[in-house]
């Protein structure tokens, strides 16, 4: 069915309006990050005093770069740990036979229902007792593995043809070797998905680091922005916006560069 010309124009109109709504907050954030705070405070958003001074100020006067570094360290460690421990756990549920396997699997499945937000009170007491407060460890150790990751990789490992396992047995590969040489390469797309997922989950943590970190040395970026915002709201909007833009740019770049992959990955997931 061909679209008529007015129909087409209408469609473009709606597309453009929606696009403006979606990128409006980005553009406004970026634009105000270029303006002097004095102009923002006067409400003159069409100011022509454009500069990158706010960025220079943000980098020099705040710990924003440190926050970014902290978040990268925490998220990368969490991601690596989850890739390792979730895949090992998933392997056990697919290729090992041991007593209580199914029961354990259902227990792990059940934990996917429990929101971390509802467990912060005892968890806070635990990390305080373990002396982990205000350190990278406190933001990594509780998330070394995840029920979701184990579940997802188990689904993926189950698609490995039994013939592969039989062949490996004939070759005399033990479980470590089969895990490393066959299972992981075979499930690399799922591993990649889990890597992206766990990284972003960790990157977006807010409540937990807010409760457990008290110094700029370890504070991740979400709580870093909270820190800046609570200190600066009414006196330096330009710098706050610049900090927010500094934080959002890396993830936007990753998103745009990885878009083809994301799309293919999603389609693949949908057809399975």
């Amino acid at each position: 069915m061909m679209l008529t010309k007015t129909h087409k124009t209408l469609r473009y109109l709606v597309l453009v309006i929606m696009a403006i709504i979606i990128i409006g907050p980005f553009i406004l954030g970026f634009w105000t990050s270029l303006l002097p705070t004095a102009d923002i405070a006067k409400g003159t958003l069409f100011s022509t005093h454009i500069s990158f001074q706010n960025y220079v100020d943000a980098v020099q006067q705040t710990a924003i770069m440190r926050y970014l570094l902290n978040s990268f360290v925490i998220s990368l460690l969490t991601m690596a740990a989850q890739l390792l421990f979730c895949s090992l756990g998933a392997y056990a549920f697919v290729f090992l036979s041991f007593k209580g396997r199914d029961f354990l699997f259902y227990v792990i499945l059940a934990t996917m229902m429990l929101p971390f937000e509802a467990e912060v009170i005892p968890n806070f007491a635990t990390v305080r007792q373990l002396n982990l407060l205000n350190h990278y460890a406190v933001m990594v150790i509780p998330f070394l593995t995840s029920a979701f990751g184990i579940f997802m990789l188990r689904q993926s490992f189950r698609q490995i043809p039994p013939e592969l396992k039989e062949a490996a047995d004939v070759e005399g590969l033990n479980h470590w070797q089969f895990y490393w040489r066959v299972t992981l390469p075979y499930a690399r797309i799922s591993l990649f998905t889990l890597a992206a997922y766990s990284f972003l989950e960790s990157w977006n943590q807010y409540l937990w680091p807010m409760l457990t970190t008290f110094s700029d040395k370890f504070r991740p970026v979400q709580d870093g922005l909270r820190q800046l915002q609570s200190q600066e709201t009414f006196n330096n909007w330009g710098m706050i916006q610049a900090s927010a833009v500094i934080v959002v740019i890396p993830t936007l770049i990753v998103l745009f560069v990885g878009q083809h992959y994301f799309k293919d990955g999603l389609n693949e997931g949908a057809t399975k």
Binding site: L15, N204, Y206, Q222, R226
Partner: peptide, 22 residues
């Protein structure tokens, strides 16, 4: 348009809050 529509996936909670707070 597809790229723009998916853009907020790259926004973390603090950034979103600051943009909208303004």
């Amino acid at each position: 348009f597809r790229t723009i529509f998916s853009a907020t996936m790259g926004v973390s909670v603090s950034v979103a809050a600051i943009f909208w707070l303004f």
